[in-house]
């Protein structure tokens, strides 16, 4: 473990040409620098996501340029845009088809909460009702810099994930679910309207 090595000793060794690392550091270093996003977009946020992937903002600088057309090869789901209730089951199904470890960025106001369409009968009020979200980006739509920021936040999260011990990463814990139930099309709404084991709306203090 990195914590087992004294930082001073480590830098002293490095000066002598000996590079000491740990399995966890090496593993997370590799993972965080080759995050492959799933290639799909839902609305105008997808345009910003495309701009982020193109040459001007160039997400390749962070190792995230390989957008995969198959969920089987993707590490990251960027929910970019309005999630309609008709689309939500497909999003959850795609998430279930992604192999562990997998991460979700909820991009923009719509994917977070429904955004300007929050009170619409046909719009899901946030993708976190059905799948766990790692990073939320506010904005309508967020600028490419914001997506890059979220991407770097996700890299920090991956960097800090433990391989062993009690607080090891979720995907290494067999007790943690990696798939979530796909909501069904009901007569009036999706059934269930939210996954109660996942979705805990924050308590609002009324004045």
């Amino acid at each position: 473990m990195t914590e087992a090595i004294d930082e001073g000793l480590r830098s002293e060794l490095q000066r002598q040409g000996v590079w000491v690392t740990s399995m966890q550091e090496l593993y997370n270093w590799g993972r965080r620098n080759s995050i492959w996003p799933l290639q799909f977009g839902l609305a105008c946020c997808a345009i910003e996501m495309i701009a982020t992937a193109a040459s001007r903002y160039d997400i390749a600088r962070f190792g995230g340029e390989i957008f995969r057309p198959s969920p089987r090869q993707a590490d990251l789901m960027i929910v970019a845009g309005t999630v309609t209730k008709k689309m939500a089951p497909q999003i959850v199904r795609l998430y279930n088809q992604m192999p562990d470890p997998k991460y979700v960025i909820s991009m923009g106001a719509c994917a977070i909460s429904g955004g300007p369409f929050k009170q619409g009968y046909n719009v899901l009020k946030g993708i976190d009702r059905y799948i766990p979200v790692d990073v939320y980006i506010p904005g309508c739509p967020p600028r490419p810099e914001a997506l890059l920021h979220a991407f770097m936040e996700l890299q920090r999260k991956i960097d800090s994930q433990k391989l062993t011990g009690d607080n090891k990463a979720e995907h290494l814990d067999p007790a943690q679910p990696s798939e979530f139930p796909v909501p069904a099309f009901g007569e009036h709404d999706l059934e269930p309207p939210a996954n109660p084991s996942l979705f805990h709306p924050p308590k609002i203090e009324r004045q």
């Binding site: 008709k86 909460s113 009968y121 046909n122 009901g186 007569e187 009036h188 609002i204």
Partner: peptide, 23 residues
């Protein structure tokens, strides 16, 4: 636009949308 299992007609004036106002 809506899925086949849906029974309501949302643009009718007496349509009541589902109650997901918890947050």
């Amino acid at each position: 636009l809506m899925w086949d299992e849906f029974v309501d007609h949302p643009m009718r004036k007496d349509y009541r949308d589902p109650d997901d106002y918890e947050y």
